[in-house]
Amino acid sequence: MTPLRQRMIEDMELRNLSPKTIILYVDNVSRFARHFGKSPEALGPEAIRTYLLYLVQDRQVAWGTYKQVLASLRFLYRNTLHRGEIVHDIRCPRPERHLPEVLSFDEVRRFFQAVHSFKHRTILMTAYASGLRISEAVRLRICDIDSQRMVIRIVQGKGKKDRYTLLSPLLLQMLRYYWWAARPVDWLFLGPSRIKPITVGTVQRVCRDARSEAGLDKAVTPHILRHSFATHLLEAGTELRVIQELLGHASLRTTAIYTHVSTHLIGRTRSPLELLHEQDQTDTLQEDS
């Protein structure tokens, strides 16, 4: 390991970045250095611009990947090399906006019917019923299920923040059946070794298989179940601020995207043309009387 890489890792640890973020940033900087065959210390603004253009034009990476690379380079030059002027004028492009895909109640029902393993169905229903990220669902412990207060405690979720989300009575009943059958001791959803928790990859594979068996046209991932949780709550009349807390969003703007997704809310919204027509009818009745 080079001294520069070691120093960057230490700088990220001092700022309490997650292990996943540290690995991602180090990998991005390594790719940048290998592209030019030089240490980042010997590269400047023109090299960064050239590399970013290479990612966009030649590699055609997604804008999310582009943003991650740019964030990695910004951290390196600002915090480790203390040469922030090199990345000062490099701006992130306006991101493409894509609305999240959401399942209807019928599609959710068909999906769960196609998940035949009781353990797998339970963890996916937990993710849907409580709006969990899959990384949060697989790392649930028995002690995180608070049946007295009817909440689930999420320990060190995204952004290293704790939060509580709802525990429905139906989910609690299902979890009790699951506990009776599986007898977990610490981790709630165990992997094959019964020592470590089930992996994210396993749950994602189950989603793909169940989606195929259910004959659903939409892609189904654990995160789409989370989107569906938020949209279904919004359509049921839950306040956006409450949904923000349940999801663990730092900004209400992030949660507000579900107002654009809900076709139910859009369908209930009356067009101004209808309001204009009603006003015309009212005016006509007043004139006749």
Rank of each mutant, 00 (worst) to 15 (best):
T80H: 02
Q244A: 02
A230D: 12
A42W: 00
L166P: 06
H227Y: 01
Q286L: 14
Y51I: 02
R121F: 01
L81S: 06
I90F: 08
H260M: 09
T284W: 13
H249L: 02
Y54C: 01
L14W: 04
R205D: 08
S228E: 02
R91M: 09
W63G: 10
F112A: 09
E274M: 02
I48G: 00
S168K: 02
L73G: 07
E46S: 14
N16P: 03
T80L: 01
R91S: 11
L55K: 00
P45E: 06
W63S: 14
T282R: 15
K67T: 12
N16W: 13
D280G: 05
Q279H: 09
N16H: 15
L172S: 10
S168H: 08
S72F: 00
I154V: 15
I145C: 11
D283M: 14
K161I: 01
G215K: 07
I257Q: 05
R268G: 08
E41I: 07
R205E: 10
K160E: 02
S289M: 06
A129R: 06
R133E: 03
H264C: 01
L265C: 05
D27R: 14
E278K: 14
Y178I: 09
A33T: 05
S212D: 15
L276R: 12
V200I: 15
Q286D: 10
V220Y: 12
G248S: 08
L43F: 00
T126E: 05
Q60I: 01
V56G: 03
L55S: 04
I90A: 08
R110E: 14
S72I: 03
A42T: 10
S228Q: 05
Y54M: 08
M174Y: 05
Q60H: 07
S193W: 03
H232N: 08
R97A: 04
T202K: 12
D217S: 15
M150H: 06
R253C: 08
T2I: 01
H227C: 11
S30H: 13
A214F: 00
H98G: 03
A182V: 09
L252S: 03
Q60E: 12
H227L: 07
E213I: 09
A114Y: 03
